[in-house]
Design a protein around this nucleic acid. Structure first.
Length: 701
DNA sequence: GAGGGGATTCTTTTT
DNA sequence: GAATCCCCTC
């Protein structure tokens, strides 16, 4: 069913009644009718209904009816998805086609607008002006800028000049404690003691002043047609704009697109000429700016009587990201025909029934199958003892390597801990680059991303070493997976055998030992071996364990060249890095398996959010009253679990908790256990959904 | 004892 | 960036 492959039950032997087959066909006929009538539509279906299947079916239908005309007019069907993973899945399931473009929203709109730099730069210029105005307004009105505001103009100018001169000093000491920071700006502190009473506010002011200046310089340069300011670039690697450098990030790209399309008939023309059919996957997660862009193209196409059809596919109750359009689709794109699918092709009737009660918008699913295998659904309210709880389920559900147990946790930190590599996760978490540098938001991606390229610099290097170690031990590894082509082209069997043996002989119980052993053989006469190691490490200056340690120290502690770091501090940093490399290799193996998406055991851990789109036979949900800073996140939901008012929940924490819970519950196909350890104020709503609440570990039927 | 400020801690996910 | 706790000052 999914790109992540197997580990799910075999549906092929389940039977579907002729009546249900007919009804399922009718849903698709509804979509065909929309295409026939030239009316755009949205397809709403709950979890497990086969949305992606329907989307692909639709594409195939459009192709079968219009391929010739599309080819003749050099037109294509556009399918936009929210993630790269989803785009790849659609491509894979659809097969290659010359009349379909499948891409993420960002790729697609950037392709559209990147070649229209003239209007793009104009929009960018307006943005720079409005952003610098906004900053000036804040300095004139926000309470954090009051102490600056109340100074005489001359003093303000003086401060601006001092800070401009000491720009590098400012950035060097920005992360210091308040006392150290005041010390670094002694002169400002003595002359303007009030201003530095709150260091945090002072930093806010200075940041704003610097930004205003940068923006104003950029505005001048754009007007002067400076060589570096004639083009706007979209940089998908960064999550924030650098407007003064003409670089924008994800959200601003969508913002500019919306403005450009709204203001520019030529772009609308190009869009609807090129793509008369647009299909949007997971519309509930799509940014409202994208919906209004598409909608304005639609209106334009109608005005000039062009064919332009849009089909949205999604489920409002699976909207778990804040900037998604959710149930506001119809407000932004008018006159859409609703097509609904009420069948579920994934889960047991028991699970479907719980899910129906959790979603409170009236969409009630039923199983498409006549008979479904045995299913267990239980809600436990007991103190959480993960080991005991999991052990019971392994017995009860017959968990094996082939029939895995999938545990869902709320946080990544827990997932790392349960997966057995919290030592590694915590090392990064506590390192100055992430902790003192306040870069917590990078931690997940840098440590846990399944995409090697998104890992942090240190993490990527360690990944490469572990990957090399893993593959060099595997009989099925292809030579080219570990050796670079040009170094093995002219190698004979004897030399190759010796090289492989040398590599397989590298041993160690810790990374420290393993890496030390790598370099023990390095530069001792075997050039092929040296090249191979250089290929793995790919960092020139690293040619010993100590050099590696220094590299990590520079990357994560970068305190070596700082005059402020005392010798003891440096020693303790070195010890910490040394301790990190002394963690057992078996722990690193667990991390390696995790980020390689290899599941070496019977149990797999996920976050609730991370399982979107997937399905598992056996699921345990670990649940608690609070989530993040919100202490009543789930406990409030449980109070109204089966009775909440859909209308009044819009935009509330209750809605987001409900959607997240809905997504988590509907991942399960056969067996689902939920364990909630806090007190339940009112048991009735929970009983309504899950039946009796179990208060002991005994797994009743 | 009120309130200002500082230090500390923290959720998820995608582009 | 915001919630929360703690400390300091008035």
């Amino acid at each position: 069913m999914s790109v992540w492959g197997g580990n799910s039950m075999d549906y092929s032997y389940l039977t579907i009644s002729p009546e249900n087959k007919e009804r399922e066909k009718q849903v698709f006929l509804d979509i065909s009718q929309c295409i026939e009538d030239q009316t755009s539509w949205y397809f709403d279906a709950g979890a497990g209904a086969g949305k992606t299947f329907a989307l692909i079916q639709t594409i195939k239908l459009i192709i079968s009816k219009n391929q010739k005309s599309l080819l003749r007019h050099r037109q294509k069907i556009l399918c936009i998805t929210y993630t790269n993973a989803a785009a790849n899945e659609v491509k894979e399931r659809l097969g290659t086609s010359t009349v379909v473009d499948v891409s993420t929203i960002h790729d697609c709109v950037w392709k559209l607008i990147a070649s229209h730099q003239k209007p793009l730069v104009e929009v960018h210029l307006k943005k720079l002006i409005s952003e610098s105005e906004k900053l000036k307004d804040s300095i004139n009105s926000e309470s954090w800028a009051e102490r600056y505001r109340s100074l005489p103009k001359n003093d303000q100018i003086q401060i601006n000049e001092i800070m401009e001169k000491k720009r590098d000093v400012y950035y060097r000491h920005k992360q210091d404690s308040a006392d150290d920071f005041r010390l670094a700006f002694k002169d400002v502190h003595t002359n303007f003691p009030d201003l530095l009473r709150s260091v945090a506010n002072f930093k806010k002011i200075i940041d704003a002043i610097f930004k205003i200046r940068q923006y104003e310089e950029a505005i001048l340069k754009i007007n002067e047609k400076d060589r570096k300011h004639v083009k706007v670039k979209y940089d998908s690697r960064f999550n924030y704009d650098r407007l003064e450098k003409m670089r924008i990030s994800h959200d601003t790209l969508l913002e500019y697109t919306q403005i450009l399309i709204a203001e520019n008939d030529l772009l609308k023309q190009i869009f609807c000429d090129q793509y008369p059919y647009v299909l949007v996957d997971e519309y509930q997660d799509t940014n409202p700016l994208v919906i209004s862009s598409i909608s304005s193209v639609d209106e334009y196409a109608k005005r000039i009587s062009h064919t332009f059809l849009v089909g949205y596919y999604g489920d409002v109750k699976q909207n778990i990201y804040e900037d998604g359009v959710g149930n506001q689709l119809h407000a932004l794109h008018k006159n859409l025909v609703r097509v609904e699918k009420l069948f579920n092709r994934r889960s047991s009737p028991e699970i479907i029934s719980c899910a129906n009660k959790i979603r409170n918008d009236g969409l009630i699913q039923e199983s498409i199958y006549e008979v479904f295998p045995e299913s267990n659904v239980n809600f436990y309210n007991i103190p959480v003892d993960r080991q005991a709880f999991i052990a019971k389920h392994i017995d009860k559900w017959g968990i094996t390597m082939e029939n895995k147990l999938h545990c869902m946790e709320l946080t990544n930190e827990r997932v790392a801990e349960q997966s057995g590599f919290s030592e590694i996760y915590n090392f990064y978490k506590n390192s100055p680059w992430y902790r003192t540098g306040r870069r917590f938001e990078y931690l997940r991606e840098h440590v846990l991303s399944l995409d090697e390229n998104k890992l942090g610099v240190v993490q990527k290097l360690i990944f490469r070493i572990l990957d090399f170690r893993y593959k060099s031990k595997l009989d099925t590894t292809m030579l080219l997976d570990i050796f670079q082509e040009r170094y093995i082209k002219d190698i004979n069997i004897v030399a190759l055998r010796s090289l492989v043996k040398k590599i397989q002989n590298i041993s160690g119980n810790t990374l420290k030992e393993y890496i030390t052993n790598i370099f023990n053989v390095y530069k001792s006469g075997d050039e092929k071996y040296d090249k191979c190691i250089e290929y793995v490490i790919a960092e020139e200056e690293i040619n010993s364990y100590n050099a590696l340690k220094l590299f990590v120290l520079n990357q994560l502690y970068n305190s070596l060249e700082e005059e402020s770091a005392s010798e003891e501090e440096q020693d303790s940093n070195i010890n910490e890095v040394d301790g990190f490399f002394s963690i057992s290799l078996s722990v690193f193996d667990l991390w390696y398996s995790f980020v390689s998406d290899i599941y070496p055991g019977k149990i797999v851990y996920h976050t609730y959010h991370g399982t979107k789109g997937r399905e598992f036979d056996n699921v345990i949900l670990f649940m608690a009253a609070g989530f993040g800073r919100k202490s009543g996140y789930f406990s409030n939901l449980l109070k109204v679990l089966s009775s909440g008012d859909n209308e009044n929940e819009t935009g509330t924490d209750l809605e987001s908790a409900r959607n997240l819970f809905y997504v988590a519950v509907t991942r399960a196909t056969k067996n689902l256990s939920i364990i909630y350890s806090n007190e339940i104020e009112d048991q009735n709503p929970v009983k309504d959904v899950f039946g009796d609440i179990k208060t002991s570990l005994e797994l009743g039927q």
